[in-house]
Write a protein that binds this DNA or RNA. Structure first.
Lengths: 239, 239
DNA sequence: TTCTGTAAAATAGTATACGATTTGAAATGA
DNA sequence: TCATTTCAAATCGTATACTATTTTACAGAA
């Protein structure tokens, strides 16, 4: 079976573009953001072949910035590329889901260890402000972006840009799966409670406690997603 | 001070291209490989501005594949990009060196834990064959590529493509620094001894031992590099 | 029917060309 | 001298156009 980006899909991509309201002065970055969002949200399901001209038309630009965007997404593991055959949305699988959850957990526990000892009062006040802001904000459609932003704020004192990037990527991959869950169960009420407990551990300088809290914060959610999604993903086409 | 890719440098880039003998049918991939090698080897030092037309001339292609290559390298953290200002080789620093060493260590210890329990007899025979092949081969100019290949062979049973990619990237970043060390001290004699001990631990199913061996295998080398390079990197322009 | 082979259509890849932006250097004024 | 303005050169960003490759559709043979 071949899945192709239909006219309908491309129209929705164009709508998504308008919705995201990104900086128009940077076509490749904008295209990457739109296509990434489309893949993560399931608008472009795994196996979809990404026709450069269709996407270019939808985003009102030429193929060149589209190709650059697709290269970027290839580097993030969201699309596969083959010379002269083009780009295809990478396949989902139970094993990739489990990998992304494990990676996230492992990288973030490491990030807690690296960041906590270096966190200043000011760093932690910034995190707290973010939690407060997050709590008043009720727009669940962006909750996962906020969640990532908050987690990265915890790790910022480590000043490890490569680690940050890896965490970001693990989140993006994982989000392809958590998004499926959300669609069935509605967006979960965000557990700012847990974030505050982790912040407390940071303030007390309790590394092991903070790591343990982050561990359960991430693991509990991951296990819930995994339990629900494993049966749904099995039997689906895997490469 | 501004560093610019001189004609001389571009000529060397062109030579590097010929030396690497990459698949000519894939210009963007080829360009990325050449430029990556040039950055890691120090031919293009940090701060060098990467003029698209110069590189295109050196690699005998147009700007389009060059831009795609540079986007890829941006994703790997080797170049920085700013709209309308182009691409610049990312800066080196003691902190980035330490980060890359820590990341490598942390990711690879995790990879040992994930791969060892799943490794079959066949998997390990393949690793052993690689060690043997590696030992006879005396071409030190490719030793770091071989080393990475061998390490990834250990982790292959885990079948975690994203983890593999992250390890690869951490190696590449780290290699910018280890390469500096090599230039002063000559290429170190590769310690196949340690690889064989790790392989033994894999064969015995001794996870904790394998992790400990991998830890010291990586840490000892990292510490040696760090001790030597820290003084040399300090005072150098950092962003 | 099923299997070719072949021609047409679709798509990928990229060199070229050109407007837009930034940079560098000379000219001017303080 | 030093700062500021101006203009030319360098460079970037990408739409367009063209070639190369792949895919599709179809005709005829087995």
């Amino acid at each position: 079976m071949k899945i192709m980006g239909s006219d309908r899909t491309m129209h929705q991509l164009s709508q998504l573009d308008r919705r995201l309201k990104l900086d128009a002065s940077n076509a490749p970055q904008r295209a990457a953001d739109v296509i990434r969002e489309a893949i993560v949200s399931g608008l472009l399901p795994s196996g979809s072949s990404l026709k450069q001209t269709s996407i270019a038309d939808a985003l009102q630009c030429s193929k060149i910035p589209v190709r650059e965007a697709l290269r970027e997404l290839e580097g993030q593991g969201l699309v596969d590329f083959e010379t002269n055959r083009g780009f295809v949305v990478s396949s989902t699988s139970v094993s990739e889901m489990m990998e992304s959850f494990k990676l996230r957990l492992h990288l973030e526990k490491f990030a807690v260890r690296e960041s906590l000892p270096k966190a200043t009062q000011g760093d932690l006040d910034r995190v707290e402000a973010l939690i407060d802001e997050f709590e008043t904000l009720k727009d669940v459609s962006v909750s996962s972006h906020w969640n990532l932003k908050l987690h990265l704020a915890f790790y910022a004192p480590a000043k490890m840009r490569h680690l940050d990037r890896m965490i970001k990527r693990a989140h993006t991959i994982a989000h392809r799966y958590t998004h499926m869950y959300m669609q069935n169960h509605g967006e979960g009420v965000e557990t700012q409670d847990e974030h505050r407990k982790i912040l407390d551990a940071y303030r007390q300088g309790e590394v092991d406690l903070a790591v343990a809290l982050m561990d359960s914060h991430i693991s509990v959610a991951s296990n819930r997603f995994a339990r629900d999604l494993k049966p749904r993903l099995r039997g689906v086409h895997e490469e």
